[in-house]
Design a protein around this nucleic acid. Structure first.
Lengths: 132, 132
DNA sequence: GTTTACCTTTACGTTCACGTCAACTTGTTT
DNA sequence: AAACAAGTTGACGTGAACGTAAAGGTAAAC
């Protein structure tokens, strides 16, 4: 076996550094749908990918509801009506615009951080000159 | 006058599409420090820039506390001790790493959105073929 | 066979980022 | 002067995203 095929809830909790409580919380809100053996949750590789996507969304500041919306959008691409699909395209475009804004924000912040870093270096140089 | 030099709280609320409550909330948490005329808040151009920065941080998913930390970092570059400055550099680097992660996340999500959009187009084409 | 480790649900508690009154002062208009 | 707009400080309410404690099921390890 080169890759694990199923995971327990604590496997995932450990791997992604979150609590089992969080993982169950995501399931409560339909972001995950693991199968069960008895009442114990069994997570597939797909479930693990899904969890990765959730965390990525969170890092970008999306709410869980927004993340679920994205998942639903994706699911809807298989077997949606024409009307649904058009609405879907709109939603996707909204997201893309949103992400472009975020990219811009990141670039601005990066500039400012570099700026701060330069000021920092400069201040250090001055301190060391005064010492000598 | 080519540019306004001061703003009322509702000026800013209108311009950035938020409530006066939010603006006062930011002040409560030391993210803004407008001057006062009597008890009325007067916002300078600098305050307005500061507010812009707050909103940018929020769009990137930073908490208000984290945003305040960034401001404090920046302030500390003027007149910090050597030790402070070194610690500062570390913090800035953390942020930069963080932002690079976010940039990566965005790129991944953009790929997925494009992917979804293609599936969407494809599905639309098929529907239209079946109609004919 | 019972401790140990891990899993389960139920339910109340908490923090963050505001929203929403309420009660008030301070100009401004009529 | 009376009304109205815009600002002020509390204080309590709210939804999101969990934390945490309670009470118990299950299965391997000793």
């Amino acid at each position: 076996m080169t890759e694990k095929t199923t995971y327990s809830i604590s496997d995932l909790a450990a791997e992604f550094d979150l609590t089992t409580r969080s993982i169950r919380f995501y399931e409560d809100h339909q972001l995950l749908k693991p199968t069960r053996r008895g009442q114990t949750r069994i997570y597939s590789r797909q479930d693990r990918v899904q969890l990765k996507l959730i965390l990525r969304g969170k890092r970008l500041g999306f709410s869980l509801i927004e993340i679920k919306e994205l998942f639903d959008l994706w699911d809807a691409t298989t077997g949606g009506s024409e009307k649904q699909l058009l609405l879907l395209k709109e939603k996707i475009d909204e997201r893309k615009v949103n992400l472009e804004q975020q990219q811009h924000d990141i670039k601005m912040l990066q500039l400012e951080l570099n700026n701060a870093q330069n000021r920092c270096e400069q201040a250090l140089v001055e301190i060391r000159n005064n010492k000598a």
